[in-house]
Design a protein around this nucleic acid. Structure first.
Lengths: 108, 108
DNA sequence: ATCGATACATCGATAGACGATGCCTCAGCA
DNA sequence: TGCTGAGGCATCGTCTATCGATGTATCGAT
């Protein structure tokens, strides 16, 4: 059984939250999530880039091509006001769901 | 935006957990989850019955046709030993994932 | 020269959730 | 008598998301 790298449906939330720390590019987002989750949240590229597209299309983020300090081109994403609003909603919804599930799990 | 009824990937976990309280049929499982989650976990039939099939096929549950007190036929599901083991794994994995996500969410 | 890390993106397969639909029984009520 | 709603099963098609594989390219270090 291949263990999943992610809880399905939570990736947009994670990306949006990461971007509250400041504009960042895709690779950096994946790194941030990996490092700040004890290596648990391993976002594959095949999941990440489609997610970044979703966020763009929905207007939750804006993108700009830039050069990193190391001289590589990178597409830097920035939260929009709508994105911040969306983040709040997704956070609330996530906590609601987790709370509901845990209330089931904790019953003896 | 249609709000989701379930956190994807958590349905098997919820069903397995529900069955630790004793054998139960599909309809009863859906009711239990609804009632014990403050009406939050609304499992649709199009999600539930495929899930019950999965659990059966994997040997996590056993099924038996019975009659309810009201005289209707019902397929009653019961946890197997393997199902109990599986439940423990899924519980651990869920808490791990939620912990990781919340550690991202709580950073300022 | 090659290799690993950085950086983008797409494609196809798989899986899961969901709404709609269909079939059946029983109890209650008009 | 006939209808309706609740209890019960199940499947089908659609949609969406995750994921592994693949492909391109640059840069620094060996």
């Amino acid at each position: 059984m291949p263990q999943q790298e992610l809880l399905p449906g939570t990736l947009d939330l994670l990306v949006l939250k990461t971007l509250t720390r400041g504009p960042l590019h895709g690779y950096g987002i994946a790194q941030y999530l990996l490092e700040h989750s004890g290596q648990l949240l391993q976002v594959g590229e095949g999941s990440l880039y489609p997610a970044l597209q979703r966020l763009l299309v929905n207007g939750w983020t804006e993108a700009e091509w830039k050069l990193t300090e190391t001289g590589r081109r990178a597409r830097v994403y920035k939260l929009t006001a709508a994105g911040r609003k969306r983040l709040k909603e997704e956070e609330r919804e996530f906590e609601r769901m987790v709370g509901a599930i845990q209330s089931i799990l904790k019953t003896v």
